[in-house]
């Protein structure tokens, strides 16, 4: 087995992604979905990965489980280490053992993540039997218990239901049960509530908070700044395939440093009851087929300088654990 230990990592580090690049070869050329993405997740930590559509947040998450179809996709990275094991060089058999057990996923659309042809109980049982040695009957009971735990009424009866017979909120509860029941070390939740109404969203987040074990980490991918505020201690902001800023929740919301983060926070419609124009960010997101040479935000940035056009800005430290990729920070970072 080719398990490569990464000795330089601190003890409580669960996941390390270093210099990840994902690209897709299409008829129109190569689209860069993610570029120089490096981050880490510690044990028990809830990390939010935020950004607008096409910024590469979902692709980054899928790369962690090597779920990018290849071809046309291509993952290049210095390494992705999960709990000391190198995901990228791992044989697929070993990876399958990690998927669903050590790392589980909650997707945006439960109806497309669940099989339409199989009853709920059977789908849940399949996951359990794949990873745990137990009699089928015990697995069935285990699944039924979890349906009850995630607040599905008449769990015994619902085990025989097909996904389409349940509401969106119920389907997402089943996804959560499936993601949590094997006590994973990391949950990757990709826009888990985007398809749901706000009152159902509140119920679902309440459930994730209550059900998640203390030392289970979560990577929450979302476009909603309100959601990350509520669920995550640390936040990574992505824009046009790159990470632009990362820091604690307080760093990002009270002391944002990158012009994109600042612009994004200002553009959010506020729930204050006061009517008026919003502070939009002018312009468009650049095309992934043709990203500019320098900073990807340069064209929309109010502080753009000559340097930004030609060079990719490095990360500057703005405080403990708070870093942003912007040349404006070059002076005070020292």
């Amino acid at each position: 087995m080719t398990v490569k230990k990464n000795d330089s990592e601190p003890e409580n580090r669960l996941l390390t992604v270093r210099n990840l690049a994902v690209s897709f070869a299409t008829d129109d050329g190569t689209a860069k979905a993610a570029d120089s993405v490096s981050f880490h997740i510690e044990k028990g930590e809830n990390v939010g990965l935020v950004g607008e559509s096409g910024c590469g947040k979902s692709v980054t998450a899928l790369s962690i489980l090597r779920l990018i179809p290849s071809p046309p996709g291509r993952i290049d990275a210095d390494g992705i280490w999960f709990d000391g094991q190198d995901i990228l060089s791992m044989p697929s058999k070993q990876l399958q053992d990690i998927r669903g057990r050590a790392i589980s996923m909650i997707f945006q659309e439960p109806l497309s993540a669940l099989s339409p042809l199989h009853r709920i109980g059977r789908q849940m049982m399949e996951t359990i039997l794949l990873h745990r040695k137990m009699p089928a009957k015990a697995a069935w009971q285990f699944a039924e218990q979890w349906l009850g735990k995630v607040g599905i009424p008449d769990a015994a009866e619902r085990m025989y239901a097909y996904p389409f017979q349940l509401s969106g909120g119920m389907q997402q509860r089943i996804m959560i049960a499936m993601a949590l029941m094997l006590a994973p070390q990391l949950i990757i939740a990709d826009e888990p509530t985007t398809a749901l109404d706000v009152t159902t969203q509140a119920q679902v987040f309440d459930l994730i908070r209550a059900m998640k074990a203390e030392d289970t980490s979560m990577l929450l991918i979302t476009h909603d700044m309100g959601v990350v505020w509520e669920m995550c201690e640390r936040i990574i902001v992505m824009y046009a395939s790159r990470i632009v800023e990362t820091g604690s929740r307080e760093d990002i919301f009270s002391n944002p440093k990158h012009p994109y983060t600042i612009g994004l926070l200002n553009a959010i419609p506020k729930l204050t009851g006061e009517r008026g124009k919003l502070n939009d960010i002018p312009g468009q997101v650049p095309s992934p087929f043709d990203y500019p040479r320098g900073c990807h935000f340069e064209k929309r940035c109010p502080f753009s300088m000559e340097k930004c056009v030609h060079e990719q800005p490095p990360f500057y430290d703005c405080g403990p654990g708070h870093r942003a990729a912007c040349f404006l920070l070059a002076d005070n970072a020292g």
């Binding site: 987040f205 309100g226 509520e230």
Partner: peptide, 23 residues
């Protein structure tokens, strides 16, 4: 009231939320 309290707003603590039962 429940609808407004369910909206996640940066800076707002989610504690005084009125969670609705059922669907």
């Amino acid at each position: 009231r429940a609808l407004i309290s369910a909206v996640p707003v940066p800076g707002k603590k989610g504690l005084q939320r009125t969670l609705l039962k059922g669907e």
